[in-house]
């Protein structure tokens, strides 16, 4: 069987016009679709800077009554974005976590079934500014149990979960930025994340991370249990939209990790490859060849060690 994978064995930093576009198998559908739709305005208040259009395609293995789940969840996600505009447009803030692939789906289709919250990454250097903006979050209030989580005051919105990002932090470490109003658990793995594409959604400017950093953040974090496996499938969702340049960047960033973390990434890729399909999540089955090619590429001359 011949598998033509975009991830296989192309040295990082070596691009030719031929392989720069279009991306191969893994992302070609989305790319071709986005190209075709470039420039067309979306309905329902969603305007994608890259030019994504109206159609709602799905990446995920469908649930029994997908449309009911998806429409409701997408509406809540978009309403949450609108309600969280004051903080989402604060300096350096990014949406991180499981909602990113939902937002990257054509039309922000949001077909991945993930937890009902919006993870908002707050750079520690901008904590004070974000804290000021939090006062404008009229639709939410801080959870008395967990003050980094803001819960909606009314139905129809998701929780907003504030997470700290510190680019100087070791990816394996974590610390608490203590604060009376907006304390943050600062996850070291988010130091791998940097600003990427901006979307206009519900008249709100939403920054998303660069795909490579977020993929690595997912793969470098310890993943156990159902939540852990779903997080790996979220990483798969991100890989499904990754361009060849993104994959090059994954490789470059991977090589900068220390050996233990490189091992964790490889280990998580093997787990991802062997996962069963789950309703409402990307199915790893059709993408196993790409995961294998990525693993082979990351191992490179290093082989199976360390």
């Amino acid at each position: 069987m011949m598998v033509d994978s975009q991830w296989a064995f192309r040295p990082a930093g070596h691009h030719t016009p031929a392989d720069a576009r279009p991306p191969a198998r893994f992302a070609w559908r989305l790319w071709a679709w986005a190209e075709a739709e470039r420039g067309r305005e979306r309905v329902a208040g969603c305007h994608y800077r890259p030019g994504w259009g109206d159609d709602v395609a799905r990446w995920t293995w469908p649930t029994a009554l997908p449309i009911l789940v998806v429409v409701t969840f997408r509406d809540r996600l978009l309403a949450t974005i609108r309600a969280a505009k004051p903080v989402l447009e604060a300096p350096g803030v990014m949406v991180v976590g499981s909602e990113v692939p939902n937002l990257l789906e054509p039309g922000a289709a949001a077909t991945l079934i993930v937890s009902q919250d919006l993870d908002v990454g707050v750079p520690v250097e901008h904590h004070a500014e974000v804290k000021r903006q939090v006062a404008e979050l009229h639709a939410f209030r801080a959870s008395p149990e967990e003050p980094s989580v803001w819960v909606p005051r009314e139905p129809g919105l998701l929780e907003v979960n504030f997470i700290g990002m510190d680019p100087t932090q070791d990816p394996a470490e974590a610390y608490v930025l203590d604060d009376d109003q907006l304390p943050l658990l600062v996850f070291g793995a988010l130091s791998l994340v940097s600003p990427g594409v901006e979307l206009d959604l519900m008249e709100t400017r939403v920054r998303l991370p660069r795909a490579a950093g977020l993929v690595l953040e997912k793969l470098v974090t310890d993943r156990t249990g159902e939540k852990g496996e779903r997080d790996l499938l979220v990483a798969l969702g991100l890989l499904m939209t990754a361009t060849p340049d993104d994959i090059d960047e994954v490789e470059i960033m991977f090589r900068r990790l220390r050996p233990e973390l490189r091992h964790v990434v490889r280990s998580n890729l093997t787990i991802l490859s062997l996962l069963e399909a789950r309703p409402g999540m990307p199915d790893p089955g059709p993408h196993r060849a790409d995961v294998a090619a990525l693993l082979r590429r990351l191992e490179g001359e290093e082989g199976s060690d360390p």
Binding site: E145, E146, P147, S148, A172, E173, A174, Y175, V176, D178, P183, L185, F187, D222, T224, E260, H263, V264
Partner: peptide, 24 residues
């Protein structure tokens, strides 16, 4: 520090310790 955050931090650090042990 909020006790829940402190507990989450402890759990995170424990998992990192276990992971390092497994890596070795």
């Amino acid at each position: 520090m909020n006790p829940l955050m402190e507990r989450r931090l402890r759990q995170l650090r424990s998992r990192v310790l276990v992971r390092s042990w497994e890596y070795r």
